[in-house]
Computed example of a mutant assay.
Amino acid sequence: MSTFKDPSAVSSYQQTAQAKVPGMAALHRMTHILLAESVPPTGEVLVLGAGGGLELDAFAKAQPGWRFVGVDPSLPMLELARETLGANTSRVVLVEGLIEDAPMREFDGAACLLTLHFLDPDTRLQTLRGLLQRLRPGGVLVIAHHSYAPEARLRWLRRSAAFASIDGVLDERDEASVAVMADKLPAISEEDEAALLEAAGFTEVELFYAALSFRGWVARRPLFIGPGEADKVQG
């Protein structure tokens, strides 16, 4: 994810992300609705992969009583988030790092958008367990990112690239970008995504968003952790 430390990539991130992710504003609105099922009017939300600040800004505007912790490994992207939030920055604590660097306390809800597809399955599982540990019982997690079966990756990534192009036609540069993404993104299938959430200890795993190569799920930390599930919460 060194791209997100490159000044030109950071400066253009918000524009390019909104062009590449179908219905990004609607995704933020849906995520807010799902979080609000668990987060009270004065609750606290953990946002992993918060660089850029688009989702933090959307949540803060929709819920003036919520407080946030935003975590991201890229300091330049966190600075962009600070600029995006403006006056709402006072309600947000921004942390440079990974899930391990997030405060170890029980948040009312958590979101991780356009981030987990960068992680291999083992690292992703550990990250999901870290999110579970930082949710109160009954707390909701919302995630969304690229997800497709490995054998279908080129087909779906080409469709997403066509969506992001001006005329829906891929040129050589687009094809090269697709090839790089197909090679470097450790994206996995919908079935494996749901299985990872369950292996991390989440329940009530539901698909809520599907847009070309992107998928989104909502899941919940159980109200009660049985003896066999305790190891998942402890990591």
Score class of each variant (00 low, 15 high):
residue 209 Y to K: 06
residue 43 G to E: 04
residue 45 V to R: 08
residue 195 A to L: 11
residue 103 P to H: 04
residue 78 L to W: 13
residue 179 A to L: 06
residue 181 M to S: 14
residue 117 H to C: 09
residue 73 P to D: 10
residue 83 E to M: 13
residue 9 A to D: 03
residue 157 L to F: 13
residue 150 P to L: 05
residue 210 A to C: 10
residue 106 E to T: 07
residue 231 D to W: 15
residue 166 I to H: 14
residue 182 A to R: 10
residue 119 L to S: 07
residue 173 R to N: 15
residue 89 T to G: 00
residue 136 R to F: 11
residue 69 V to P: 11
residue 15 Q to Y: 11
residue 12 S to Y: 09
residue 132 L to T: 00
residue 61 K to Q: 10
residue 233 V to E: 14
residue 55 E to V: 12
residue 79 E to G: 05
residue 216 G to Q: 05
residue 181 M to D: 15
residue 150 P to R: 08
residue 208 F to P: 10
residue 134 R to H: 10
residue 126 Q to E: 12
residue 223 L to C: 08
residue 84 T to V: 12
residue 192 D to N: 12
residue 187 A to Y: 09
residue 28 H to P: 01
residue 4 F to H: 02
residue 159 R to T: 08
residue 128 L to I: 01
residue 221 R to S: 07
residue 190 E to A: 14
residue 108 D to F: 01
residue 55 E to R: 07
residue 19 A to V: 02
residue 27 L to M: 06
residue 184 K to A: 14
residue 88 N to C: 04
residue 147 S to N: 02
residue 23 G to Q: 05
residue 228 G to W: 10
residue 116 L to E: 02
residue 57 D to C: 07
residue 17 A to V: 14
residue 207 L to C: 13
residue 143 I to F: 14
residue 201 G to W: 06
residue 134 R to T: 01
residue 179 A to S: 09
residue 133 Q to N: 11
residue 96 E to R: 13
residue 5 K to A: 13
residue 232 K to S: 06
residue 99 I to P: 02
residue 83 E to V: 14
residue 174 D to N: 13
residue 39 V to G: 12
residue 127 T to A: 11
residue 203 T to N: 11
residue 12 S to C: 12
